[in-house]
C-alpha cells in the first residue's frame, strides 16, 4: 500500500482543502472590494471607530500562536514531546485569548447599538451599515474558523500526548498546523482592511 506512507499526498489533500477555504473567504473579499470602492469615506469612518489596539493585539496573538504551532512540529520531529505539547497548549491559549478579545470588541459595539439589523445602522448612512455588516460577517466567519482550529489543535494535542503523533508519523499535526496558519493568513488580511483603512 503506497497510500499508507504517502504523507506528501495527505498534505496535498490538505492544501487543496485550504484552497477551498481561501475562495470561501474570497467571496467576502469580493464584496469588500466593491463596497470599499463605493463607500470609501464610510469605510474610513467605520475603520476609525474600531479599536486599533484590540486589532493589533489580536494580530500579535495569532502570529505568536502560528509560531507556536510551527515550533511544535519542529519539536515533534526532534522527538521533544514535552516541548511540542507545551507549544500546542500555547497555541490553543492564544486562540482562546483571541476569542476573548473578540468577545469584548463585539460586546462593546453591540452595546453601542451597532450590530446587523440594529436601529443605528438601519437608519444611518448606508455605507456604514455595509461596513459593519461585512465586519460582523467576516470576523464572525473567521471566529468560527478559530473555534474549529482550536478543536483540531486540541485533537492534535491529545494524539501527541498519546504518542499517536510521532517523529515518523506526524502528518496529522502538520495538517492541523496548515489549517491554523491559514486562519492566521486570513486575519493578516482582515486586520488592515478593517482596522487600518484610512
Amino acid at each position: 500500500m503506497r497510500r499508507a506512507a504517502d504523507h506528501q499526498g495527505t498534505r496535498l489533500g490538505m492544501w487543496l482543502f485550504l484552497y477551498t477555504e481561501i475562495v470561501l473567504f474570497g467571496g467576502l473579499f469580493v464584496l469588500y472590494a466593491v463596497y470599499l470602492s463605493t463607500y470609501s469615506s464610510d469605510f474610513i469612518e467605520g475603520g476609525k471607530s474600531l479599536s486599533r489596539l484590540f486589532g493589533a493585539a489580536n494580530t500579535l496573538i495569532l502570529l505568536i500562536s502560528s509560531f507556536a504551532v510551527a515550533a511544535s512540529i519542529t519539536a515533534v520531529q526532534k522527538t521533544q514531546k514535552k516541548r511540542s505539547l507545551l507549544c500546542l497548549a500555547v497555541a490553543i491559549c492564544c486562540g482562546l485569548l483571541f476569542l476573548m478579545n473578540k468577545y469584548f470588541e463585539w460586546g462593546h459595539k453591540i452595546h453601542a447599538d451597532i450590530y446587523p439589523g440594529s436601529e443605528t445602522l438601519a437608519y444611518g448612512a448606508p455605507g456604514r451599515n455595509i461596513f459593519f455588516g461585512l465586519y460582523y460577517v467576516m470576523t464572525g466567519l473567521h471566529g468560527l474558523h478559530i473555534v474549529i482550529g482550536m478543536t483540531l489543535l486540541s485533537v492534535a494535542l491529545v494524539l501527541t500526548a498519546r504518542e499517536r503523533v510521532t517523529a515518523e508519523n506526524h502528518v496529522l499535526l502538520e495538517n492541523v498546523g496548515l489549517y491554523w496558519h491559514l486562519v492566521d493568513l486570513i486575519w493578516i488580511f482582515i486586520f488592515p482592511l478593517f482596522y487600518l483603512v484610512l
Partner: peptide, 13 residues
C-alpha cells in the same frame, strides 16, 4: 499583508 502572508507560507507552512 502579502509580504507577511508570504513569510507565513514559506517558513511556517
Amino acid at each position: 499583508a502579502s509580504t507577511k502572508a508570504s513569510l507565513v507560507l514559506i517558513f511556517f507552512m
